[in-house]
């Protein structure tokens, strides 16, 4: 699919993207097939199809407003897609509510950071660790707390865990999002725009953490609006714009893709 063909230029895209591509449920850990989401008259995601392979780190890139968050809200169950199918490990999970998707093994972070404001960092992670059961007593005996402490230290919040979320700097909030997502013991994590607002050094630290997670077996999809922080991190990238697939390939291929370059003209 070409990038919204307004200039009428006849140059073929460097990376041919098949209009009629169809994915099998088994093409990857997560498969989106013909995903479409409309809000009233606005089509935010338009017939998007892609597959995420086991244990890869996939970059999901697009300018602001391209439909990245909408795509993942549909996939993670925040709201159902208007059309299309989502497969997780071969199973049709289209439209399942968020808590069930987490149960299947898919966790996400929130770009806009959604901590529980009324409790400490540690308690935030504890809350995330708690199982979906009405009568679990692990909390009373302190098991959950011990686990939460370990998790906080893993993401680098060991010194801050007794603070409140509103005392944390940007990077800290991101770490909290990661800790909460990790608390659910996922096979696959969707990280929504982690690098916005981070300093160079912090980007490096987070990237290391994500790479570690991948080494341990977690598949990762990292959403971002440009490739600044992603280049060394990701194996592969998918670029979308105006809710449609724009390009796909290795980071180098993506960077040389004229459609991609055109889409980003002026937005960098």
């Amino acid at each position: 699919m070409s990038s919204g063909a307004q200039s009428g230029d006849a140059e073929p895209p460097a990376e041919p993207v098949d209009d009629a591509r169809n994915f099998d449920p088994d093409d990857g850990v997560l498969v989106a097939d013909g995903l479409t989401k409309r809000f009233g008259g606005l089509t935010a995601v338009d017939d998007l199809s892609f597959a995420v392979e086991e244990q890869e780190i996939l970059g999901f890139i697009g300018p602001n407003g391209a439909g990245k968050s909408t795509t993942f809200n549909c996939i993670t169950g925040r709201y159902p897609p208007t059309d299309g199918t989502v497969y997780y490990r071969g199973e049709d999970v289209t439209g399942l509510p968020a808590y069930e998707m987490v149960g299947k093994g898919l966790a996400r972070t929130f770009q806009e950071f959604r901590p529980f404001e009324d409790r400490t960092i540690l308690a935030n992670v504890q809350t995330a660790l708690v199982p979906d059961e009405l009568f679990s007593t692990s909390g009373l005996r302190g098991e959950t707390r011990a686990e939460a402490i370990k998790l906080c230290e893993r993401v680098g919040l060991g010194d801050e865990m007794h603070r409140m979320p509103d005392e944390l700097p940007h990077a800290g909030m991101l770490r909290l999002e990661l800790a909460r997502a990790m608390a659910t013991d996922p096979d696959m994590m969707l990280i929504d725009e982690p690098f916005a607002g981070l300093a160079e050094g912090e980007i490096g630290q987070i990237s290391s953490l994500l790479t570690e997670l991948r080494e341990e077996g977690t598949t990762l999809v990292v959403v971002d609006h440009n490739m600044r922080g992603l280049l060394e991190l990701i194996d592969r990238a998918i670029v979308i714009n105006f809710g449609e697939l724009l390009a796909e390939g290795t980071p180098e291929e993506i960077r040389e893709n004229p459609d991609v370059q055109e889409a980003y003209l002026g937005s960098e």
């Binding site: 993670t76 169950g77 925040r78 509510p97 968020a98 808590y99 987490v102 149960g103 966790a107 996400r108 929130f110 959604r114 901590p115 529980f116 404001e117 009324d118 409790r119 308690a123 504890q126 809350t127 995330a128 708690v130 199982p131 979906d132 059961e133 009405l134 009568f135 679990s136 007593t137 692990s138 909390g139 009373l140 959950t144 909460r180 997502a181 608390a183 659910t184």
Partner: peptide
């Protein structure tokens, strides 16, 4: 117990609670 933490978390942010399973 754990349920208590969840109940108060629901008040704080229901979407986040769902996102933690």
């Amino acid at each position: 117990s754990d349920a208590g933490m969840v109940l108060t978390a629901i008040r704080a942010d229901e979407i986040s609670v769902a996102a933690t399973g």
